[in-house]
């Protein structure tokens, strides 16, 4: 008879790690390192992500004894990583980047879309129309040019695919605030993607 191996839950590992079991902490690191690295790349840059990754797990190690399990472990961990990324962004002199505001949708004085249907639709095809490497570069640029508050909400909700409720818990804001920030970010990024692709008239 095959006995399925049951992986210990995050919360069980966290409790063991908090009690000083280093192997439990190591399991947590292995379980989450790839996801936290990807998140760090999205919130900062490929260059800064290794530092954010290290800082995140050091903070986790130090603060595990205070993790009480009121929130899900994943939400707690993502909050630490998001804060580490934010500190990193603030710590370094950031090059002034132009805002993505100019890519918000435009309307005529009747409140109707000013652009043509083809122009409005084209962002949906950015990935078939653009070279992969160029798109990867531009995607990072788009995220970097979002205001900090929008970036966090957008990355957690749309790129890490957390639920709106979990993003709200992670960031300590209301779900309605998350929806508003994610929406603004989507509008800007959508317009930016569209601007990269030429529409044949």
């Amino acid at each position: 008879m095959i006995v399925p191996t049951v992986e210990p839950s995050d919360e069980a590992l966290a409790a063991r790690a908090a009690a000083g079991d280093d192997s439990a902490f190591e399991t947590i690191v292995r379980r989450y390192q790839a996801r936290i690295y990807r998140l760090a790349c999205r919130l900062t840059s490929d260059t800064d992500a290794p530092d954010v990754l290290q800082e995140t797990f050091l903070q986790v190690y130090r603060h595990l004894p205070s993790f009480r399990g009121e929130s899900q472990f994943g939400t707690w961990l993502y909050r630490i990583a998001s804060n580490a990324a934010l500190m990193h962004r603030r710590a370094r002199m950031r090059r002034a980047t132009s805002s993505l505001e100019t890519f918000l949708p435009r309307f005529d004085d009747q409140g109707m879309h000013a652009a043509t249907p083809a122009e409005l639709q084209v962002a949906a095809r950015a990935d078939e129309l653009l070279d992969r490497q160029l798109l990867a570069k531009k995607a990072r640029e788009a995220i970097a040019r979002l205001p900090d508050l929008y970036r966090e909400a957008f990355v957690l909700r749309d790129l890490e695919e957390m639920s709106t409720a979990d993003v709200a818990r992670t960031l300590g804001v209301e779900p309605a605030t998350v929806r508003q920030r994610v929406h603004r970010a989507r509008l800007m990024v959508r317009g930016f993607l569209g601007s990269l692709v030429e529409v044949k008239s």
């Binding site: 990807r38 790349c41 879309h113 409005l120 639709q121 084209v122 949906a124 990867a136 993607l193």
Partner: peptide, 20 residues
């Protein structure tokens, strides 16, 4: 047309930034 591109935006960004 707008809704179609709005709905595709998260997926396009997600795929384009999926670092390993």
């Amino acid at each position: 047309a707008f809704v179609a591109s709005y709905c595709e935006t998260p997926r396009i960004l997600r795929d384009a930034t999926a670092s390993t």
